[in-house]
Design a protein around this nucleic acid. Structure first.
Length: 716
RNA sequence: GGCGUGGUAGCUCAGCCGGUUAGAGCGCAGGAUUCAUAAUCCUGAGGUCGGGAGUUCAAGUCUCCCCCACGCUACCA
């Protein structure tokens, strides 16, 4: 491990690009950004050369669909959220060297260069298919942008991928009288080409590289250093067999396929091709601003590349992006991808669409000056190996018991005593004077031996940070503070100051050394606190340029961190208690999600186009009673039902298995779309459809008649 | 359903290649203390290590089966 760490000449750290269609919530911080920030700050404190890049991911279908819904341009959407996200990171003290965006011209150029390179090398597999083209709009139409008459049921509003009425899965060419939803014109079939990355061809070296760290005979990383769930997830994909994946889409928002390539017209890069390349373009933009050569960060084997991501991105960062980088040929591969798992909130999954989240920008508004409290709580509960949980109660406890009671209190005690006894000057002491140390209170200790023990402890903090064990590092930092409290307690300088003033000098001097060490080592996690501590200690602010490695060197040589006679300021409270009322307000706020949303956030599903009564009258909806219910084998979401419609009994397969148990729905009244064309689901012919409504939590519930009606009654 | 990861004290988690009476923090109980933001320090209670079977002189740690959570994936008209 150590070998791999100390060899590289420089580090390139990337954090997952946030998707610019919503604000940041605490899950994002827990998944990637506080880990990457802590790691980057740590590397800087160790005097390493490091660049940390991030930026907004501004392409992809979700953004166009949202823009369409709100009636604004995609650019407006991404501008809004890019600005909000960037500002939120700054306010929280996440220290990217650059926060870029994928709509920037340099990103489009960079992505195109990648595509062009792979194209010219013949890496892509080209596949031509016939697709509908809107001549008025001048573009190929995604399946969803085509409507027409369903060949199965005659529904005139069927989409190119499926008919919402009868449920048939369609391809656009099957539609009768197809029309473009963009212009209403009749589209024509034209040949279109897409370029596939043949992942199947790369599977062998990817598997070898992931599991051994070797590529082309070179040892690139140590697989044992990768997290289990990361390697496991990769092998899961590899064992299932990789398939060629299209790197292009027929869309109107995104990076153009390089125009000189035949058939490029109207084609955009697949968002998962362009997004990781965003790391490269961000690095270029940073290098241009700082007079550096971006290439050494991506193309020199002595650069160590680390991707910080959440577990949902593992396959892209460990398989697809490395495949792209390797196919290009000039690029280094990631040394590690320390993906975190997910953080839940008060027992439930975070969800942007359900509004179940703590929005970071709102936190910063509600808790001014408490940036580090959120940082602390999230790192303390970081989902490093498994999913974890954020609760407001644990947030309050961490603040009141650990930050106030342990850390802030220790520092305050030491500085207060220094002023009380020595007018704020670090006391000189007799090195032969003993006192009670924290590590073994039964034996007298000495200043130099306690300093060495502290040195060992700090090295453990350093090791933990180096190995991405952020919770462990934070815990050990707090232990240091706790040991400081113990020493004060054991020696009781406020008592002994009169009859044994010499021992008090040692105790206070050592305690001040601990505070000085804390001001450095706390930095990766609590940067704002670090600044405040340095001010109180009357020390140079931390610039994150080798302070930690120098401090460790000094300690190894037996040098003090604060010289005798150095004046320290009078203390101020680093953290203050948070009362129940404030916490209760946040809990209440969670339970009224509408107040936490920005105005355009959730318009819900928009009302569909008007239809005639005629069309409605074609639907035959009947009341029914469920007679039998059972699970469908090999399907998690399906229940097979037998429903009494009065005139007959039907078999209906319904996707409600995660909302209802078979035994609890027998005998229930339901509404059934009775003339929906039969369709096979998992080998069972489903003859109709059960009508359900979705509640605020996303659960499906039956729609029923208000009072009992005999089965088979029509619904109008 | 397939694959992956995890399931250890009330809560959050450590426990590496199997080896003495299974650990920490928080919470709880009792005690000490007052320099400090009713903060601190000490002591204690509390666990059949998801369940079952097996390998072994010895298993939380290895093997098999099952259960649960989460992720990816299939199925959701």
């Amino acid at each position: 491990m150590a070998d791999f760490f100390f060899q590289p000449k420089r580090y390139l750290i990337t954090s997952a690009l946030p998707y610019a269609n919503g604000p940041l919530h605490i899950g994002h911080l827990a998944g990637a950004y506080l880990a990457s920030d802590a790691y980057t700050r740590y590397l800087r404190l160790m005097g390493k050369e490091v660049v940390h890049v991030c930026g907004s991911d501004e392409h992809g279908a979700a953004i166009t669909i949202r823009a369409r819904k709100e009636g604004v341009s995609p650019q407006e959407i991404v501008d809004r959220y890019h600005a909000l996200i960037k500002e939120t990171f700054e306010r929280l003290g996440v220290s990217f060297d650059i926060y870029h965006r994928t709509s920037a011209p340099i990103h489009h150029e960079t992505s195109q260069e990648f595509f062009r390179n792979l194209y010219q090398k013949g890496e892509f597999v080209e596949q031509e298919t016939m697709q509908y083209f809107d001549e008025e709009a001048g573009q190929f139409l995604a399946d969803r942008y085509i409507m027409g008459t369903c060949p199965t049921c005659g529904n005139e509003e069927a989409y190119g991928d499926q008919c919402e009425k009868c449920g048939s899965t369609l391809s656009p060419e099957e539609l009768i009288n197809p029309r473009s939803t963009l212009t209403g014109s009749t589209p024509v079939l034209k040949p279109t080409k897409h370029w596939f990355l043949p992942l199947d061809k790369y599977a062998e070296w990817l598997k070898h590289w992931i599991n051994t760290g070797e590529l082309n005979g070179l040892q690139l990383h140590e697989p044992a250093d990768w997290k289990n769930h990361v390697v496991g997830q990769c092998n899961s994909w590899l064992d299932a067999g990789l398939h060629p994946r299209s790197m292009t889409r027929d869309l109107d928002w995104g990076v153009d396929v390089p125009p000189e390539i035949p058939g490029a017209e109207g084609k955009k890069l697949y968002v998962w091709m362009d997004a990781p390349i965003g790391y490269v373009s961000a690095t270029k933009a940073w290098a241009a601003d700082h007079g550096k050569d971006w290439k050494i960060y991506w193309q020199d084997p002595e650069t160590q590349l680390v991707h910080f991501i959440g577990k949902d991105n593992i396959v892209f960062h460990c398989l697809i992006f490395p495949a792209i980088l390797n196919a290009h040929g000039d690029y280094v591969l990631p040394k590690n991808v320390p993906a975190n798992q997910f953080m839940n909130l008060e027992g439930k999954k975070l969800s942007t669409s359900k509004g179940w989240a703590v929005w970071v920008h709102e936190y910063l508004d509600d808790f001014p000056g408490r940036e580090d409290v959120l940082r602390y709580t999230i790192v303390k509960n970081m989902p490093e190996q498994r999913d974890s949980e954020f609760t407001w109660k644990s947030f309050q406890d961490a603040n009141n018991n650990e930050l106030v009671g342990n850390l802030a209190n220790f520092i305050n005690r030491v500085l207060v005593l220094t002023h009380k006894f020595y007018q704020g000057e670090v006391p000189a002491f007799d090195p032969d004077e003993g006192f009670t140390g924290a590590f073994d209170p039964d034996w007298p200790s000495y200043h130099d031996s306690e300093m060495l023990l502290m040195f060992d402890h700090l090295q453990e903090v350093s090791r933990a940070l180096r190995e991405f064990e952020f919770r462990e590092a934070l815990k050990r930092i707090m232990e240091l503070s706790s040991m400081g409290n113990s020493i004060l307690q054991y020696n009781e300088p406020w008592k002994t100051i009169n009859d044994d003033p010499e021992s008090v000098k040692v105790v206070i001097n050592f305690s001040l050394q601990v505070v000085a060490a804390l001001s450095v080592v706390v930095r990766p996690f609590l940067p704002f606190t670090s600044d405040k501590m340095r001010t109180m200690l009357n020390m140079e602010p931390i610039k994150e340029s080798g302070e930690l490695v120098r401090m460790l060197d000094d300690l190894a040589e037996g040098l003090p961190l604060l010289a005798a006679g150095h004046y320290v300021e009078k203390p101020e409270h680093l953290f203050t208690r948070i009362d129940d009322k404030v916490i209760q307000e946040q809990v209440d706020k969670l339970n009224q999600p509408e107040t936490t949303l920005t105005e355009n956030e959730f318009s819900g599903e928009p009302v569909k186009e008007n239809i005639d009564y005629d069309l409605f009258s074609k639907m035959d909806i009947r009341t029914g009673t469920i007679l039998k219910a059972g699970y469908v084998p090999k399907a998690d979401k399906l229940l097979e039902l037998e429903v009494d419609l009065g005139f007959e009994k039907r078999t209906i397969v319904s996707g409600i298995a995660q909302h209802y148990k078979p035994e609890e729905i027998v005998g229930k009244a339901v509404l059934v779309l009775a003339n929906l064309s039969p369709r096979k689901l998992r080998g069972i012919v489903s003859n109709g459809m059960i009508l359900t409504a979705e509640d605020a939590e996303g659960n499906l519930v039956f729609v029923q008649p208000a009072t009992a009606v005999s089965p088979g009654s029509t619904v109008k």
